[in-house]
Every structure is written in C-alpha cells, then in structure tokens.
Amino acid sequence: MKLRIRMRRVDSLIKKGVKEVIEVGTEDLSLSTLKDVKEYVNYIAKEISEKLGVEIVKIEFQGNEDIGARYILYRFRLYTKKGYIACRVVTYFNKHIQTILTVGG
C-alpha cells in the first residue's frame, strides 16, 4: 500500500492539547467493512510507530458516524505506553479519502 504521510505542527488545536497532526493519504483504497478499516489502521500504525519512534501497544476502535450521506468517520485510539494517539479515518462511498492522527503535548 502506497502511503503519503505528512507531519506538521498546528496552532489551532493547541487548546485541545494537540501539538502535532499527522495526515495519511492513500491511493485508491476500498474500506467497505469495519474489518477492512481495522486492518488498514493496523497497517498504518506500524508506519506511525516507526516515524514517531514510539511503541503502539494497543489499538482500540472508538466508534464511527455518518457525516452526511456519503462520508463515514471512524475513530480509533492508538495507545502508547504514555498515552494515546487519536486516529480519524474518513471514507467517501467506502473509499478512503483521509486519515488524521493527532498527537498530544
């Protein structure tokens, strides 16, 4: 799977305790079932773990919701030994369009 990963600092989420955002884009990726989404998150978690130099000890599905009639937002937590990284996966007609991870301070 070809991933495009971009890490950047953001000012607008500081009040929420978020210091860094990681954006993950993919080429055409179908995520038709929750199982597909979980497998995808497991895959990118390894990449994120390497990039950040932290061990991800557990991945937890938090829930999902429709955003309009075509988009679905899936929320996960990637637990490290010190806390967690929040992960939001968005699909459009079951195609992945973006993943955003937020890293606290």
Partner: peptide, 27 residues
C-alpha cells in the same frame, strides 16, 4: 491559507454545502 480548528482535523478548506465539500482529499 492556514488551518483553523476543524480544518486541522481534515475538514474542507471551503465547505460549500451544495458541493458536498465536507473533507479535504489528501491524495
């Protein structure tokens, strides 16, 4: 351009309701 709160979480730069502009596409 600079992200605001929701834009930093992936929401669209413009958000036109008639164009279904809810999220940015990253790829």
């Amino acid at each position: 351009y600079k992200d605001g709160y929701w834009e930093a979480l992936g929401y669209h730069e413009r958000g036109n309701v008639w164009k279904d502009e809810r999220f940015k596409k990253l790829y």
